[in-house]
Design a protein around this nucleic acid. Sequence first.
DNA 1: TATGAATGAGTGTTCATTCAT
DNA 2: GATGAATGAACACTCATTCAT
Lengths: 209, 209, 209, 209
Amino acid sequence: MQPENESAGQGRRSFIEEARRGQIVRAAIETIAEDGYAKASFARIARRAGISPGLITYHFSRREELIMEVMLSVHASMERVLARRAEGAASYAAALRALVEGFVRYCADHVPEMVAVAQIAAGAGDAAKARAWAERQREETLADLAEMFQEGQQEGELREFSPRAMAVAVLAALEATPAELLARPDTDVDDYAAELATAFELAVRRPTR
Amino acid sequence: MQPENESAGQGRRSFIEEARRGQIVRAAIETIAEDGYAKASFARIARRAGISPGLITYHFSRREELIMEVMLSVHASMERVLARRAEGAASYAAALRALVEGFVRYCADHVPEMVAVAQIAAGAGDAAKARAWAERQREETLADLAEMFQEGQQEGELREFSPRAMAVAVLAALEATPAELLARPDTDVDDYAAELATAFELAVRRPTR
Amino acid sequence: MQPENESAGQGRRSFIEEARRGQIVRAAIETIAEDGYAKASFARIARRAGISPGLITYHFSRREELIMEVMLSVHASMERVLARRAEGAASYAAALRALVEGFVRYCADHVPEMVAVAQIAAGAGDAAKARAWAERQREETLADLAEMFQEGQQEGELREFSPRAMAVAVLAALEATPAELLARPDTDVDDYAAELATAFELAVRRPTR
Amino acid sequence: MQPENESAGQGRRSFIEEARRGQIVRAAIETIAEDGYAKASFARIARRAGISPGLITYHFSRREELIMEVMLSVHASMERVLARRAEGAASYAAALRALVEGFVRYCADHVPEMVAVAQIAAGAGDAAKARAWAERQREETLADLAEMFQEGQQEGELREFSPRAMAVAVLAALEATPAELLARPDTDVDDYAAELATAFELAVRRPTR
DNA sequence: TATGAATGAGTGTTCATTCAT
DNA sequence: GATGAATGAACACTCATTCAT
């Protein structure tokens, strides 16, 4: 009898179950990050976690559910970190800088998570639900960014440019960070973040005559 | 009985073989772009090409070889286009603009190719060789870009910044283009390209005065 | 630590155990009848009974044992009912009528039981023992019926015919009843029973001149 | 690339493919008849046919398709045989006798087919489509039988009785035949058929005063 | 007594690859 | 050159059964 997750009103998950789920999610993240999404079979994930493949299905009724959980957990963790940073920025440029630096910092500290999420987002057909969710999330982030730019323009702090195109460029640069840090592990993360922040600051702010 | 590809010294490919290979590569690109890498089985590719699955293996001894060929052909095609644009740029800023606009233009005109390549790059384990090659290629592109920036800095046209970080940001923005054009088909491509070019121009050039 | 069923000489079953077994058997009957034998997993049966799957194995050491118990309990219940009807029939024709009407009546009142038993009888390999038992039971019923016919023939009440073939036909008609009542719920059960009884009465009795 | 069965307009099946399909259907019938539906896995069917399990999926795109083909082929074969017998019956009683004897004869000659079909009809959930089809077929047969009885009643040849109930009884007796012949292989088939025919003749015809 | 976490064998199905034709 | 029948390994998933608690 599977735990029949999350649906039932009273159905809380036991401590041990929560622990196993966490363990499996971790193993899934690492497996996807290291071996690639397509090779992240239950067999491999289970081997890494030191459990039997059947146990994964026992805790996650479908593969989709596990993949979704990976997405959700990474996203929630990042949100928590970024939220702290975003508060109390004095200007739009400062807010952008806070976002960029926070994101890069998070990437540096959570490379496997970011790689795994990227794999899933770009990945196969059997993660359709998770991919759709990620795309919606991404679209939302883009919209937020663009809105921020627009406000900055209306208040005269930022120059005139296409908020959307700039948002795409910024997010793309952020999303490229995990791969870059993976490819060049010696990168000074804070420098890297500052460079990005400065570049985009110059790109968006009204040129001081 | 197979054509024994590429290895043999004298082994030129016949005209008809070259044609078949091209047909298969095209079908592969379209299938990967439309159905996703994971669903792009030989059966599907062959159906699209109107041939039997066995014939693919006849022309490409391993799956890896076909995927590799997809990469190579797209890359070659893009190089050809970009090379024309890059020549005769009067300044580093102009060269950057030419690159950005050329790349975006190419993306707009070759969506399936770009989507397929992105799928492969992010994709499965049986594309390891192709992925490695793409990564090497990408590294090379980054190095070229960074070198260009460095020269611009030495000549005083560009401000001081990390050439590497800027190169990553620029390339990331470019690589995000196909997805963006796919997600927002109404985007004015030339505007979009100009916006990116301007943004990065502001980011790199020595601030006037 | 299991109850070590039925084997031990002294091993009586406690009251509570008997109750659990009954509850599980009922849940099994309903699950098999509604979801089909193949889908009647321990998980489903346990969910219906509001217990854990492990508890089923605790009370029935093998799946086979549970299935067997289903058979036995249904059979015993039917026997009890039929026995009452059979007594005191004045003629062989009357006895046949009593049997037919009793059986049909029982079917109408115990659809799930009959459906479940039919599912098992026609069903899977892991019910082999139960199926064998049912077949033996069936054979016995056929023998009883045939013997009754033979006696009726010897006493001159019934015409000459193959007792065995007639027994098969009668039993087949009876066994078809649950499905028929399920397919046509509006059937008037008593009419239906009377029709069958009359048909077979005409088939067996010595034609009145 | 699977043969993509039956749908395409021009898509004829090759000779060799037709042969394989037939071989697989035969193996499926025998496996179901001997081991039971639930144990008739592709692995077992393939072993019997001396082929690999994958080949079954190659020729039948889903399991359901194979099961359906079993049903259809048995049904078609029986129809062919029965059709010859049914023609030219001088009375309703004679038509009934022809049907009964034809059916029994067919059963005797095709025990595995009949057992397999019975297994599927009574069987698991993953044969839903085939079971539904069989049930529709059965219902049709019942309707035909009942209609025949009704006509016979209207013409005065048959006594008054419920055509439906009688149809059910007759069909049930027929369907019980394979099991009976299997249980008692020494049965004289023609005698058995004649007994059934006579029994139902007496049951339906207007008693000769 | 009862739970539910865990296992391992088994399922249908997919697919790159082989090979006789 | 080309076909398509055939294989075998891999996949997610199901489930009776075991066992520590």
